[in-house]
């Protein structure tokens, strides 16, 4: 079954504060601990694509507006 939603996180826009990871209700986000962006920060990424529900909590709390959220269309 395809996920209900997915997020796109800007690697360079992310500052790795972890607020999105903390507030995700289904814990589908993580910080990339084995990689950094050009600022030397561990960026957030969608680690568990199957569970994302597209609730947009991560994007609402993201201070740097680095997250774009998509949700499965109801009409289709």
């Amino acid at each position: 079954m395809a996920a209900k939603g997915f997020v796109e996180i800007s690697v360079e826009g992310c500052k790795g504060c972890g607020l999105c990871v903390h507030h995700c209700p289904v814990k589908c986000l993580s910080l990339k601990m084995d990689d950094t962006n050009s600022f030397g920060l561990h960026y957030a990424y969608l680690s568990n694509e199957e569970t994302c529900i597209g609730c947009a909590n991560c994007a609402v709390i993201c201070p740097d507006a680095a997250i774009t959220v998509y949700r499965k269309s109801k009409a289709v």
Partner: peptide, 19 residues
């Protein structure tokens, strides 16, 4: 992706400059 709609994006009036 097909079958998905935009729910949340960065506001247009917030410039793309890194804060």
């Amino acid at each position: 992706k097909d079958g998905y709609e935009l729910v949340y994006k960065r506001p247009d009036t917030l410039l793309s400059k890194r804060m």
